[in-house]
Structure formats: structure tokens, C-alpha cells
Simulated scan of single mutants.
Amino acid sequence: MELYRTVSFWSFTLCSAFVLSTPTDGQRQVVGPAQPIIAALGDDVILPCHLEPMADVQGKTVVWSKPDLKPDPLNPQRGVDYVHLYRNRKELPDRQIPLYSGRTSLFKDELKNGNISLKITNVTLEDHGRYKCFISRLNSKVNEAILQLIVVPSTVETSTTELPLNPGNLQTPDPLDKNLPKADDYSTLCVVIPLVVLLVFTLVAVCAYFLVRRSQQNNLPDKDAPQKKPLTV
């Protein structure tokens, strides 16, 4: 009997510790990037969004939408269509905005890790704006995140069009890394190079001036030299 009570006590203690250490839906939250995502016209872009702490969302409903988009005035009962809709473990294109038809996708293999990032291919100017990623039935106070997508001409260099799937792999460059180019270096070169060119040009002009003056002085008659008198007969 004593052994039974001991085993029951420790079993209850271990189960309680496990339950307390396991995050509930109320402790989880949807997290998006703090900085705007920049994409070049015609490129592919990933809008990062994930659940933190990590949890399997394969059985959840994942919705990507544009919060600033208004309902169709010709069909107000339909409501607002979605950028991308995932429900019942499959993607549903029937309520998708026509602009995004065939251009959006989730990373289904990453849903088990709480990754609900959205990929948009062949970015257009109409894709510019705010996006909302949302997980329904999460029982959390933070079940959505808002992020900004900025579309720029293809001539502008961008470095944020492709982001790692795993948010934990995001790394910030070390500001002390000497191999990274600095903006101050380019500013210094822009000032130093014209000054060097101006200095060289000035030196060349001064040298040429003195050479010309010296040549002119050599060609002048010598006033101190004795003058030759004409011969008398």
C-alpha cells in the first residue's frame, strides 16, 4: 500500500510538471517581422510569419489577407476575399483575390513547426501594401500579425526578398565585421577623389606656367652683355 501511494505521488508530480512546462494556446502568439519587407518588381518574395513558441498548425485555419482592402461594392454579401486561405489541411483558391491566383503558396512541410510564411511569385506593383497573417481557433490574445510589403522597381537592389523559413536562423550582420562595406567609406571616397584630381591638375598647371616663363626669359636679349660696335673704315 505504501509503495502504491509513493508511485501515485511521483506520477502525479511528473504529470503536473509536464503540464506546467507545456505552453498552452493562450501563451502562444503569431509573430511577424518588425521591419517592412522590400521586393523588386517581378521577383519572388517571402512574407515571414510564425507561431511562437513553435507548435503544429497543420490542423488550424491559416488566413492571409490585406486589411486595407474593401469589399466588392457589386457583391457586398461576399465580403473580402483572401490573399491565401488554408483550411482542413488544404489550400482553398475559391475565395482568393484574382490578382494572387496561382502566385501564392505556403510551406506545407513547415506548418508542423508553426511556420505560416507566405510566398508570392512574380511580384507586381499591386502587391504593395499591408498584409495580415491570422490563425483561427488559436485561443490566444495575439492570433494575428501585420506586416508591410514595399515593391520597388527592378533596378533598385534589394536584400530582403528572400528570407529563411526558420525565424531562428535569422542573423544580424556584425557591425564590427571589417569585411562589410560602410557608408562612411563611400562618402569619404566621394570627397577625397575629386580633391586629389583637383590637386594634380593644379600642380600640372603651375609647373607648365613656370616652364613657359623660363622659356620666355631665355629668349630675351641679355642687357648686361657688351654691345658690338660697328666697324669704322
Rank of each mutant, 00 (worst) to 15 (best):
T6A: 14
V123P: 02
D25M: 00
Q216R: 14
P98N: 10
S117F: 12
K178W: 04
L149N: 02
K119Y: 03
K108Q: 13
F134A: 00
S187L: 12
I97P: 00
S105H: 08
P167Y: 04
Q216S: 04
Q148E: 10
N166W: 09
P98I: 04
P153G: 06
G42W: 04
N115L: 10
Y100D: 03
A145E: 02
L92P: 01
V80H: 06
V196W: 14
I193C: 13
P230R: 13
V191N: 10
K132E: 06
N166L: 06
V80C: 11
Q148P: 00
L211G: 01
I97D: 11
L138D: 06
S65F: 01
L138Q: 09
S154K: 14
N88G: 02
S215F: 03
L147P: 02
E157Q: 08
S140R: 04
D222G: 00
G42E: 08
L220G: 00
H50C: 07
P98L: 07
L106V: 06
T104K: 09
K66T: 05
H84M: 15
Y186C: 02
T160Q: 15
V57H: 07
I97Q: 13
K141I: 03
I120A: 02
Q216E: 05
G26I: 04
P153V: 04
N75L: 09
Q77G: 14
K229V: 09
P194I: 12
E157M: 04
P153Q: 10
V196K: 13
Y186N: 14
